[in-house]
Simulated assay, not measured.
Amino acid sequence: MGKRPTFNAPRPTLTQRHINVGRSSLSVGRSGSNPVNSYTHPLSSKQAAELRLLLDELGFQFASRPYTLYFAQKEKLSAAVYGKGPKLLLQGKGIEEFVQFELEPKILGEAKLGYEEVHSPEMFEPHFGVDESGKGDFFGPLVIAGVYVDRGIARNFMDAGIQDSKRIGSDARIHSLADVIRKTHGAIADSVVIGPERYNDLYEKFGNLNSLLGWGHARVIENLLARRPGCPRALSDKFADARVIQRSLLQRGREIKLDQRTKAESDLAVAAASIIAREAFINWLNARGKALCVKLGRGVSGSVKQTARDLVAKHGPAILRQVAKVHFRTAHEIAPESFAAPAPRTEWRR
């Protein structure tokens, strides 16, 4: 087992914080009177075996749980190690102390909790984060959003619990966090909402989703640069060749450094952008559904297809161009005489 590394800076005390740095994630805090405590971290097979011995030494009681290599609990703290990964999930009370004084020094051999700026310094440097919502949803717009952060803003976002919108199950929580982002001093947010009619026209013009995404990302970056000129870098999730965005940038954005990486939502600016984009997507669906007296669902589920059939029966096939992305195979399934079957997918090559 490794020794605990030391740093000159003292480890901060966490009172309310969500941390998602690298490959680990911690959420510690209170929502009203209900504590919310959870922590995940990938383990090697050796670390999983060492952790089992450590938990036994500490007096944890083991029990069987589905999909786990083992599950152990002591008082109000539980540890589940899942076979896929393996991955550790801690839940309950006392997580911070367990991570700092047991897991990190004795199993992981490195101190991460409280040292976010040591492990991910670029997350605290001035930059834009860009993300989208609605890409995989039949109904609704494609929304691309961007958020500017610096060190102080990133710290405020971390304390507020900003995280990838896909990990937030409540629309009310999305609205609450979006409000926090907009009210954070110094933060700048911008979004481009491409409604279905415009989306369908642009998709036919560009011929593929990656080019459309690149165009939308570029527009958001340009808008942010107009309000925060001189920002040196923009980060987004990796969805295609970065040159797609670069070619779409106008003169103002030609000098900015564009970074793309998988799982970019672990960056606080990108996570904030995902929340802003998701809120705009939710708002559009709710407003348009109310106008049509229907519930416009998300994704491409059976209920979404049934809603599409009902709309076509009432308004005719043309309604789909107003509320849905008609290059989806779903449009052809619902109204085959009006919408052609999509061409077979071709793999993108560099």
Rank of each mutant, 00 (worst) to 15 (best):
T6E: 15
T6F: 15
F7S: 01
T15A: 11
R17V: 12
I19W: 12
S24P: 02
N37Q: 10
Y39C: 03
Y39M: 03
K46N: 13
L51V: 13
G59S: 12
F60H: 04
Q61I: 12
F62K: 00
S64I: 13
F71E: 06
K74M: 13
A79N: 06
G85D: 09
L90T: 03
G92F: 07
Q100V: 04
A111R: 06
E116Q: 00
E125R: 14
I144Y: 15
G146Q: 08
I153P: 09
A160L: 09
Q163V: 14
I168R: 01
A178K: 05
D179A: 14
G186I: 08
A187T: 08
S191R: 13
R198I: 14
R198W: 11
Y199W: 11
N200K: 01
D201Q: 15
H217Q: 09
R227K: 15
C231S: 11
L235H: 06
V244S: 02
I245P: 00
Q246R: 09
S248F: 03
L249E: 02
L250M: 04
E255D: 11
Q260D: 08
Q260I: 05
T262W: 11
V270Y: 10
G297L: 08
D310I: 03
A313H: 10
P317S: 02
P317F: 08
L320A: 01
A335Y: 11
S338P: 03
R349C: 04
